[in-house]
Design a protein around this nucleic acid. Structure first.
Length: 197
DNA sequence: CTTCAGATGCTCT
DNA sequence: GAGCATCTGAAGA
């Protein structure tokens, strides 16, 4: 099993909207003791830093939790939501403008058995991918074995990486972001990106 | 297919 | 103490 090279840090040195769109079709790969898992990124959301009321770094809020958002582009920001689920974000733009892209969904590609076991669902015969295995941000982290130990690590060639290879085909659809509280005019903005097909 | 309630623990006020 | 960038299973249409 071999993978293409990881995306370089320059890929991430753009605003969250650009990176959220560009990431669709690339593959998130995680190496672990249990085996390698990988999946094509098919859903993302952009969180646009200091000006975005829905973003953890709104108005440059800088706390122990949000500190990784001020790290280098191409690093991971992982946090716990609802006390139960982890969410994986890719830090982008610049260290002084903390944008991030939430990875909301994958099409499982490698390590289907490992992913199914972690998720507590039955494996499918003949390596038939289960499209429901990682179709949500919490599910992505659980299936890929991502947790706070990965917080702040680089995605440009470590345990976690996003590879250069991009699956062809499909159509990009945009819509409003999901699960936000009272964020005023930021609620309806089409900052969620999905790859169909 | 849909809606709905509950789980659960950290973060910030 | 309030509020979460969520998921699941049960119940109804």
């Amino acid at each position: 099993m071999s993978f293409s090279r990881p995306l370089p840090h320059t890929f991430y040195a753009e605003d969250a909207l650009s990176v959220a769109r560009k990431l669709l079709g690339h593959c998130l790969v995680v190496r672990s003791e249990e085996g390698v898992t990988g999946g094509t990124i098919i859903e993302t959301e952009a969180y646009c830093g200091a000006l975005d009321r829905a973003c953890h770094s709104f108005r440059y809020r800088r706390t122990a939790r949000t500190e990784p958002m001020y790290g280098p582009p191409g690093s991971a920001y992982v946090y716990l939501v609802y006390g139960i689920h982890h969410c994986l974000n890719v830090v982008c733009l610049r260290e002084d403008e903390p944008h991030a892209v939430l990875i909301r969904g994958l099409r499982p590609t490698w390590g289907l058995g490992v992913m199914a076991r972690r998720r507590g669902v039955p494996s499918r015969a003949n390596d038939v991918p289960n499209p429901r295995l990682a179709d949500g941000p919490g599910k992505v982290c659980e299936a890929m074995g991502i947790d706070l130990a990965d917080n702040g690590t680089l995605l440009t060639g470590g345990r976690l990486m996003i590879t250069e290879e991009r699956s062809s085909g499909g159509c990009i659809v945009q819509g409003p972001r999901v699960g936000l509280g009272d964020v005023g005019e930021f609620r309806g903005l089409p900052w969620r990106f999905m790859l169909t097909g």
